[in-house]
Nucleic acid binder design. Structure first.
Lengths: 261, 261
DNA sequence: CGACGTTTTGAATTGGTTCAAACTAAGTGG
DNA sequence: CCACTTAGTTTGAACCAATTCAAAACGTCG
C-alpha cells in the first residue's frame, strides 16, 4: 500500500510534492468509472486533466475536516482513509472506508458541508478537482453524471451491507464480511490478487469499523487463524479459504459489481 | 411477506385502483425535490405527469422483489416500507426505511438489479415511472439529475448515521436516534408535527431495524416512557422531550436538510 | 366469546466488554 | 550494538448489556 515495508504506514517523502504521473490518475479514473458503465475516452481524458497536482497527506491527518465546506472533490490515489465520527462516550465509529480510486467526498459537489471527517489511515496521495470544473464536465456529458451517480449508489449498497453486518451478524461473521469486502474492492482497482492483500490497519481501527472492542477483534482474528480461514502476518493478509469466509459471512460480491445488463 | 389479511394495518380497498389525484403526487414530488435544491416548475410538472397510475400494495407484500430486474422507479405516496435482508440464521435486518415521498428504488435506474427486497410495512400507495421516461427527463434538465443524485447522497448520509448507531450506541441511544430521525423525515414531508407522529410498526419490526431482540426493544421503550422522554400509545408516538432525546442520541438533523451553502 | 397477534414481565444464559498486565516488534539515541 | 521507548498484539478474569426461552396479560376483531 503505502511506501515500503518496515513501517507499513510511512512513505518516503522526497521533494516530489506536486509531481505525479498523469497517466496513473487517468488509469485509475478509467478503471473506476468504466467498470460499471461506459464513459467516452474523451471525457475521461478531460476529466483526468482537470485535476490539480497531487497532495500528500500523512497518516492520521484529516483529509476532510468535519463541518468544513468543500470546494473541490478529492480522489484517493494511494493509501487508506476512513470517514468517522466521534461520540460523547469516547467511542469512534468508522462509517466508510476509502481505498485507492475512491472519491473521498464526491458528495460535496452537491452537499457542500460534510458532517463527518475523513482521516488518513496510512500516508495518502490524493488529487482534487474543483467543483466548478467537475460541474462543467458533468453538464457536457450525461454518461459522466450517470457514472458518478452510480458510484454514489454503490457506496450506498456498501453502507447497507455494513448495516446488515453490524445489526445482524456475530463478531466472527462481521470480521469475515469485512475481509471479503475489502479484498473485492481492492482487487477491483488492482491492489489485491490471489486472495492476498495489504491491510495497513491496527486491530483497534478494525474494532472501530466493526463496532467491537479491540480485545475482541484480537480474539476473533485468532479464531479465524486457528480455523485456517486466513493467514495474517503484520499488514499482509491471505484469505486461505475464500469459500469458507464468504459462506461464514454470507458474502456475495454482486453488490460491488456492474449491473449484469 | 404473504398477502395482507384483515388486521389493524389494512386500509379499505374501494375500487379506486388507478384513481389518484395528480396534484397529490405533484405536491409530494415538489416537496421532495425542491427542499434541498431548485428544480424548475416545468420539469416538476413533466415529471409528475410521467408517472403511471398508482398502485395499492397491501401490508407485508413486497414492493420490490429481491434480485428482480426493475424497469421503473417507484415513488411511495403513502405508508411505510422497508428494505431488508434475511440471513441464514433466521434473522432479518432492515437496511432502509422508506416513507411517503421517498423513491423506493431510485437506484434501479442505474443499477437494474437490487440485491435487497423492499416490503410494505403498512398498506402502501405508490406510483411508478418507467426508466425510459425518467431517463429522458434527466437528459433534458441538469437540475433534475442533480436533485435526484442529491437524494441518493442524503440516503447515504442516513445509512452512515445508522451505521453509527448500530456500531457505537447502546440500545437506548439507538431507539432514541431512530425516533428522532423518523420524526424529522416525516415532518419534512408533512406527516408529523408538534413532536407527534404515527409509527405503524410492531416492536418486532423495530427490533429488526435496531439490531436488537424484540424483548429488549420492549424494555427500552418502557425505559424511555418511564423517564418521560416519550409517550407511546398504539401507533401514536409523542416525543415529549425532544431535547432530551436528541441529546441522548447525539442526534443532529443537519444531515437530512439542505446544504447551508 | 374465542383466537390471534402483540406487548409485557421474569429468570437464566451468553457474547462481548472492560480492566489489567505481559509480550512482541520496531524505532531512537547514546 | 545495546538499553530505552513506544505502538501494537495477546492473554486472563470479572463483569454487564442484551439475548433467549417461557409464560402471562392485552386488545381487537370476526
Amino acid at each position: 500500500m503505502s511506501g515500503g515495508d518496515g513501517n507499513a504506514r510511512s512513505v518516503e517523502r522526497e521533494g516530489e510534492e506536486g509531481m505525479w504521473s498523469g497517466d496513473e490518475l487517468h488509469d485509475l479514473i478509467t478503471i473506476k468509472l468504466t467498470r460499471r458503465r461506459s464513459v467516452s475516452p474523451a471525457t475521461l481524458r478531460k476529466l483526468s486533466e482537470a485535476f490539480n497536482p497531487l497532495a500528500l497527506i500523512p497518516a492520521r491527518d484529516d483529509l476532510i475536516v468535519q463541518g468544513v465546506k468543500a470546494s473541490s472533490c478529492l480522489l484517493l490515489l494511494n493509501g487508506f482513509a476512513a470517514r468517522y465520527r466521534l461520540l460523547r462516550n469516547g467511542r469512534r465509529q468508522f462509517t466508510e472506508i476509502c481505498l485507492p480510486g475512491d472519491f473521498v467526498n464526491l458528495g460535496s459537489l452537491l452537499k457542500k458541508r460534510q458532517r463527518q471527517g475523513v482521516v488518513a489511515l496510512t500516508d495518502c496521495r490524493a488529487a482534487s478537482i474543483p467543483h466548478a470544473r467537475l460541474d462543467r464536465l458533468i453538464d457536457a456529458d450525461g454518461d459522466l453524471v450517470r457514472s458518478l451517480w452510480l458510484d454514489t449508489l454503490v457506496d450506498g449498497a456498501v453502507s447497507r451491507e455494513w448495516i446488515l453486518a453490524l445489526g445482524a451478524q456475530s463478531a466472527k461473521e462481521r470480521l469475515a464480511w469485512f475481509l471479503c469486502e475489502l479484498y473485492c474492492r481492492l482487487e477491483l482497482v488492482g491492489r489485491a490478487k490471489d486472495c492476498c492483500f495489504q491491510l495497513p490497519m491496527t486491530q483497534a481501527e478494525i474494532a472501530d469499523i466493526l463496532g467491537l472492542s479491540t480485545v475482541h477483534v484480537n480474539r476473533v482474528v485468532a479464531e479465524l487463524r486457528r480455523e485456517g480461514l486466513v493467514e495474517w502476518k503484520g499488514a499482509l493478509v491471505h484469505l486461505k479459504d475464500w469459500g469458507g469466509l464468504a459462506a461464514l459471512a454470507e458474502f456475495d460480491k454482486a453488490y460491488l459489481e456492474s449491473p449484469p445488463e
